[in-house]
Design a protein around this nucleic acid. Structure first.
Lengths: 358, 358
DNA sequence: CTTGTTAAAAGGTACGTTTCTGCATGGTGA
DNA sequence: TCACCATGCAGAAACGTACCTTTTAACAAG
């Protein structure tokens, strides 16, 4: 048969290397992977021949054989056709960037996958593990993955009894409570909230924390909700909030664009920030350092989250997770700027300006 | 042998389905993939059994057999350890988002890969094709991929003789020339440029277009450069530009954060925008619609670019690219706002405000 | 009864690795 | 001299799928 001389028009296989080097396939594999017991002479000879032939091991074959693909899924929630919301934009981008770096540093690559899709791309790609951002309570994808023994680590503490391998999250309640205290310290008498209509964990926890705080200090809650995935609705909701008869003298906005939305609304109503209205929003955008006035933001530290999620996941994949905690709480960071400092802003010591975060 | 009853502790294979359904492996494969000639009864029976066993075809095995992985690489340039620059942030995020959507809609998934990496993750993942953002002139990765017959489509017209399958880009020269004309029409006498020190195509083309325009209208070039990957350097460069003795009365900033940087610098020097200083920057951020004043931006339409790149790539992968043009120029979009309209801004008709772009 | 035709399903090989097992060889201690 | 061991390497069995080739059964036409 022409089996041994069978010409693969495309790429050179391990067989071709073995033939060209005058050794067996086993020897080539061992030489290239640093396994087995081979004298350095053989090893380097094989390497040289492989190099000369431009040999690239087939990832598919290796994956099939070893069961490891070196691929990690990054699941994003979708709204309609688009992956991830505009409101989560900066957060997601930062988080994904950090996750990508962390994964690459350990030899893994990230595959972006939607929480749902018509073609099930899911079964078309061999995943060693998956990162899920803010999974829904009974998420079928997660359940399915775990059932197949694929590690799943979530960004956001999973609700219900979702059987994830681990999770990373901020302490959203504590963050909101601390932030409201900060506003109260700055002189706020009635603090309003700009929140979302969705039921995800972040929105829910933040809102209940707000309500609890109001209850504790004896303030009537003043809030407006809007569908956070609609980029226009935020500005309208901000307007609604400031148009109320019981207009708040301080507002916290849960989503990234709320800062500019609220600032624009305040301008329309002739309210000065921070004199008439204190402002804080949750955002990762550095742009808020240079608005007029600069706006105080709550950072969820997406880079630390992205890194932590990936580390936990890869540890689980490689079986290094013995006894290591698989739940991790990342502290938030309140970056205090002018918009939340009513008294003598110019004598206040502001925290050192970070270049790009972290 | 216990071969036929061999228990795979993990997942059910096609063999198990065949055995459970009382048919051959071939029949199972055909039934599940809609091939062969099978009566509907058999087909649905097999499907039902497969479902009951929770059968998932092995992506690795399928890839090995068919040579198609359904995976597309998305290569981002790296600066140090971090993928993509902060200045390209919004652009990249939008572009990646669109590319992800487009790929998923055609049954492909995106893998994020760095232009370089210590572990060569590259050969560890089976790619059907690759999208490369702004490749360097003699990019070894691209050359290698093409040599192995893997289609490569670049975002950004490749310099030199890089043998890509296709590319998508804006007409950067035309965009800059048009934008400078717009500023001149608004009354600018001396237009300055805030540009980068890097040698990528975008920076180079934009800068030369600026110089050409200056030459044409007989203006002395007034520009400052800074390393665009440094998030702090932009503000300093903006300051330098406005501190010059030959201070410009209009500035175009090549990078996303330049708008806020310039606005802040103008404020420091007591310059009113647009009365004393006209401002335009290249950005995809919607935040510039609500700054004070709103800033005119040049959008490179990253969503259209991301979509186009992926379509061209997948067409090439699937061999549908006969005669179809593989080079595509996407028009830019100048979103005119207050910062570049000196005369009677309130009677000027501004273009309809788009919700989120496109 | 033979031959041709077609639907339905089975058989078997190849995809390119990794890795377990095993075979030589040559040196060493008893 | 023999048993023993370490070394250096080869053979061959998987991994799970897709698809090409062949077989079987059934049935119609000659």
């Amino acid at each position: 048969m022409s089996r041994s001389t069978g010409r693969r028009l495309g790429r050179a296989g391990i067989r071709d290397v073995a033939a060209a080097a005058g050794v067996s396939i086993t020897t080539v594999s061992d030489a290239l992977n640093g396994k087995g017991r081979l004298p350095d002479a053989t090893r380097s000879h094989v390497r040289e021949v492989a190099d000369r032939l431009g040999y690239r091991p087939s990832a598919a074959a290796r994956t099939l054989r070893t069961g490891k693909s070196g691929l990690i899924g990054l699941t994003v929630t979708t709204y309609g056709d688009e992956p991830f919301t505009f409101t989560e934009f900066a957060y997601f981008a930062e988080m994904a960037r950090a996750a990508t770096s962390a994964a690459l540093a350990r030899g893994y690559a990230l595959v972006i996958l939607p929480a749902t899709s018509r073609h099930d791309v899911w079964s078309n790609v061999a995943l060693d593990g998956t990162v899920v951002i803010d999974p829904a309570d009974g998420d079928p994808v997660v359940t399915e993955l775990v059932r197949h023994g694929i590690p799943v680590v979530s960004d956001g503490r999973p609700g219900g009894t979702l059987p994830v391998t681990g999770w990373v999250d901020n302490d959203h309640e504590a963050a909101v409570l601390g932030l409201l205290d900060h506003l109260a310290d700055a002189g706020a008498r009635r603090i309003g909230l700009l929140t979302g209509t969705t039921t995800d964990t972040y929105t829910r926890l933040s809102t209940t924390a707000y309500l609890r705080w109001c209850d504790r200090v004896g303030q009537d809650p003043v809030y407006e909700s809007y569908p956070a995935h609609d980029p226009c609705a935020g500005a309208i909701a901000a307007d609604r909030l400031l148009a109320r008869p019981d207009r708040p003298d301080a507002v916290y906005g849960l989503f990234d664009p709320n800062g500019t939305d609220l600032l624009a609304a305040a301008r329309r109503y002739g309210l000065r920030v921070p004199e008439d209205l204190l402002l804080v929003c949750c955002s990762e955008s550095t742009g808020y350092a240079t608005t007029e006035p600069p706006i105080t933001t709550l950072s969820l530290k997406p880079r630390r989250i992205g890194t932590a999620v990936v580390q936990i996941l890869i540890d689980a994949i490689e079986g290094l997770d013995n006894g290591r905690p698989i739940e991790q709480v990342i502290p938030t960071d309140l970056i205090v700027r002018t918009s939340s400092q009513r008294r003598s802003p110019r004598t206040t010591i502001s925290p050192p300006r970070r270049p790009a975060g972290e």
